[in-house]
Design a protein around this nucleic acid. Structure first.
Length: 462
RNA sequence: GGCCCGUUCGUCUAGUGGACCAGGACGCCGGCCUUUCAAGCCGGAGAUCACGGGUUCGAAUCCCGUACGGGCUACCA
């Protein structure tokens, strides 16, 4: 894609630390990283913390943590530094102030003394007259006297704004429809609409890859870039939004899947999440579903990105995660399961893995299969006949070496001698041993529990 | 309200004028395997291609309109 005389590719994400780290941030970061690695470019992390009301440093830490967990590492950022430091917008306010002053001086922006109430009234008026609202430019033509609190507004030049979107092709917007907008708030901080293009320009960002919600913002930012005299980014890529299951926009309260932390907590493998995210809104044009990161690097391209939003689907994620779990080596799976069953020693976990592997959709599922190892199940009441068989099982197991294979053959023999079906014989045993209807295969269930404990559970019940 | 983006099985999608009475994946249903649950294998149901016009010998694919969904229109990002 890059032609020799093009400057080296630089891309960025600019998440806002106003809450937990978002799924959308991971998705956008993935596409940025893919493009950066494909072009031997640089991936920049910039923290967009100009909303003084909602920013918190601990939220910034969550962003780092989540991106690192996903192995979406950045080349430049607040914690790493780089040639365009600082990378935190709150530390760049001098730059925005200078740029705003320059715009005012050159007649591209002006101070606006209107109060929120006055603006609200203007808006309502327009609505009542069924007019599209545009700021009246009162403060440009006839500013009120004697006020000191002001915001800075950009004087929109109008005209047609065109740009290239790598997903959607050539875009055009009619800027005559856009009213003069605020670029510096009355608290002195820049708005997103201002800080973002200024930083993109000064950080020499060549390709802006971001969510579709910014598509309509692009003409605002391009006008600013032009007025400031910076070169425009070469291209944009507006990626489809991730929607909730019901097709609505995700909300923090109703949609836990928005929070990146829960994927780690529930035992989704980061590489599986990335695979799923890549497939939400993009497809390779082949029937391949499982992609290593390197394979994604090979096949990803913006011209195969979907134009419409995609709904998030736990079922498909679960399937992909299960595929990844099954492809892990036994040792690796044991290592990854470990934090979820911290009650158990490494050896027990390792021995459970062969039986566990095909049964997990996510690592946290291991708890349900293994918790009988550290909690005593209630002893069920058994009828006479069943008790007899449980006792027979206990007797058969007493002399046996405590490994799945010998346990299995001893039990098979006991089944034969009992004259009942395997199901009739095994179901009560499973219940007594684990307290559950669903468990690992019975010989594993036995072998994982220390022999004396297993036998005493049988004897206690019979 | 205005502007922008979108609309193919429940979901993610393939499809760029004839090979499509629409293919794959997840999920669902049935079977095999089986001590439970999975995994695996085999098979199945499931889409009047949002709707209405047009262009064309021929349209899911091109054009127009409508409906629906989403985004932006904030001194949020």
């Amino acid at each position: 894609m890059a032609v020799p005389e093009d400057p080296p590719v630089r891309v960025r994400i600019a998440p806002s630390p106003t809450g937990f780290a978002h799924l959308g941030t991971a998705s956008t970061a993935l596409y940025n990283v893919l493009f950066a690695r494909q072009t031997a470019g640089t991936f920049v992390l910039r923290i967009d913390d100009t909303d003084m009301e909602r920013n918190r440093p601990e939220y910034e830490a969550l962003i780092y943590e989540s991106l690192r967990w996903l192995a979406l590492d950045w080349d430049e950022g607040p914690d790493k530094g780089g040639p365009h430091a600082p990378y935190r917008q709150s530390e760049r306010v001098d730059i925005y102030r200078e740029e705003a002053a320059r715009l005012i001086k050159e007649g591209h922006a002006y101070r606006c003394y209107c109060t929120p109430e006055e603006l609200e009234a203007e808006r309502r008026q327009a609505q009542a007259e069924k007019r599209a609202y545009k700021y009246s430019r009162r403060c440009l033509t006839n500013p009120p006297e004697g006020r000191s609190v002001f915001a800075v507004r950009f004087q929109v030049p109008g005209g047609e704004i065109r740009f290239t979107d790598m997903v959607r092709g050539e875009m055009r917007f009619d800027a005559d429809l856009i009213g003069d907008f605020i670029i510096v708030k009355s608290d002195g901080y820049p708005t997103y609409q201002f800080a973002s293009p200024v930083d993109d320009a000064r950080m020499e960002i060549t390709h802006v890859i971001r969510g579709e919600e910014h598509l309509s913002n692009t003409p605002y930012q391009l006008m600013l870039v032009d007025a400031l005299g910076y070169p425009r980014p070469q291209a944009y890529a507006h990626m489809p939004l991730i929607l909730a299951r019901d097709g609505a926009k995700m909300s923090k309260r109703k949609h836990p899947e928005l929070n990146l932390a829960i994927y780690r907590e529930q035992g989704y493998l980061p590489e599986a999440l990335l695979n799923y995210l890549a497939l939400l809104g993009w497809n390779p044009g082949t029937e391949q579903e499982i992609f290593s990161f390197d394979e994604l690097l090979q096949s990803f391209s913006f011209d195969r990105v979907q134009h419409g939003g995609a709904r998030f689907d736990w079922e498909k994620l679960n399937w992909i995660n299960g595929e990844y779990i099954r492809r892990l080596s036994d040792d690796e799976l044991a290592r990854r399961v470990q934090p979820f069953v911290s009650q158990l020693d490494a050896d027990t976990i390792r021995r459970a893995v062969p039986a566990l592997k095909t049964r997990l959709h996510k690592l946290a599922d291991a708890v349900g299969y293994l918790d009988y190892l550290w909690t005593d199940p209630p002893a069920p009441s058994l009828d006479e006949e069943t008790s007899l068989r449980v006792r027979a099982a206990a007797d058969a197991l007493k002399p046996v070496a405590w490994e799945p294979e010998p346990i299995e053959s001893a039990l098979e023999k006991a089944v034969l001698e009992s004259g009942v079906s395997k199901g009739r014989f095994y179901n009560p045993l499973r219940d007594v041993l684990t307290g559950k209807k669903v468990a690992l295969p019975i010989h594993y269930a036995f072998a994982l529990l220390p022999k004396d404990k297993a036998l005493s559970r049988l004897e206690r019940a019979a």
